[in-house]
């Protein structure tokens, strides 16, 4: 969904389909922003030394979109942004496939880089997504939250 928050147009999507990162970054650049920064999370090929067949991702429809919009608003209130895109996939994703795109546009590179890092750090601990790892052995295990992710999210002043 394209939603307006804090006077800025955010592009917030939760979807099973893949995204076209090139097209999304081009859309953010189109206004002549000056700087566009992005982060793409990709499914790993192994976890804890075990070969991974796929990740399964589920989310809390409604709350997820609200949370991502609030995070985008928070980023836009802290940094001078001209655009913000967050696309998170759900469903069964194979190694190498895209999971999430976070991208921001700003007149200044420092703002775009910082806002992008802020958004992915906060998303990991605040947005209601859950991952299960499907190993090549056939075992399926829910991923445990990582203390390091919480530390990264809290480290933002």
């Amino acid at each position: 969904m394209s939603v307006t928050g804090g006077g800025l147009m955010h592009n917030i999507l939760v979807q099973e389909a893949d995204f076209d990162a090139t097209a999304e970054l081009a859309a953010l650049s189109a206004g002549g922003a000056g700087a566009v920064a992005s982060f793409i999370g990709v499914v790993r090929g192994a976890a804890g030394g075990r070969s991974l067949a796929a990740l399964r991702l589920e989310h809390y429809p409604g709350m997820t979109e609200k949370t991502l919009l609030a995070l985008a608003d928070a980023a836009a209130s802290r940094w001078e942004l001209t655009g913000c895109t967050i696309i998170h996939r759900t469903g069964r994703l194979a190694p190498g496939q895209n999971i999430v795109l976070v991208a921001t546009a700003s007149p200044h590179r420092a703002a775009a880089l910082a806002a992008t890092a802020f958004l992915i750090d906060q998303l990991k601990t605040a947005a209601p997504f859950w991952k299960a790892e499907e190993f090549s052995s056939g075992e399926v295990e829910w991923v445990a939250a990582r203390d390091a992710d919480h530390a990264a999210a809290k480290a933002w002043p």
Partner: peptide, 26 residues
């Protein structure tokens, strides 16, 4: 009501509650 809260938060007039493990997105 789609807002994270502690286990001792009064429910008030809320009509939706969700239980889940710590989130692991991104």
């Amino acid at each position: 009501a789609q807002e994270f809260c502690g286990l001792d938060t009064p429910l008030g007039n809320a009509d939706e509650i969700a239980f889940f493990p710590p989130v692991t997105g991104g």
